[in-house]
Simulated scan of single mutants.
Amino acid sequence: MTGARVLPTLYSDNYVWLLPDESRTVTLSWAADALPSGRPALRVEGYNVPRTVDRS
């Protein structure tokens, strides 16, 4: 993982407020040639949650 951003990326929502036990699906899309490896990593941050990296 290089940490480089994939641009342009379109988000269905980019600023989300959640209460305990709530969840929300956010969809991301980008041009196929913007990510040659085909293996995105998503970094999620919050005020009161640990940093998470999803390597789906």
Rank of each mutant, 00 (worst) to 15 (best):
P50S: 09
R55Y: 09
L42I: 14
L10R: 07
L18R: 01
N48T: 15
P40K: 10
R51P: 01
A41E: 12
A32L: 12
T9F: 02
S29Y: 08
N14T: 12
L42M: 03
L7N: 13
V53K: 02
D54L: 14
D33W: 06
N48M: 13
V49S: 14
A31M: 01
Y11V: 06
V53G: 04
S29C: 12
A32Q: 13
T25G: 03
P36Y: 09
A32M: 12
Y11T: 06
W17N: 15
D21C: 05
S23V: 07
T27R: 09
N14L: 13
D54Y: 11
E45G: 07
R51V: 15
W17L: 15
S23N: 13
S37D: 04
S37R: 06
V16A: 08
W17H: 14
V44P: 04
G38I: 14
W30G: 09
S29N: 11
V53L: 05
S12P: 02
P50A: 10
N14H: 14
G46R: 02
V44T: 08
R55K: 05
A34G: 08
S56V: 02
A34H: 04
G38H: 10
T25H: 01
R55Q: 10
Y15W: 15
S56C: 00
P20R: 03
A41S: 07
D13E: 15
R43F: 12
P20L: 01
Y15E: 15
L28W: 01
N14V: 10
L28N: 02
A34Y: 03
A31R: 08
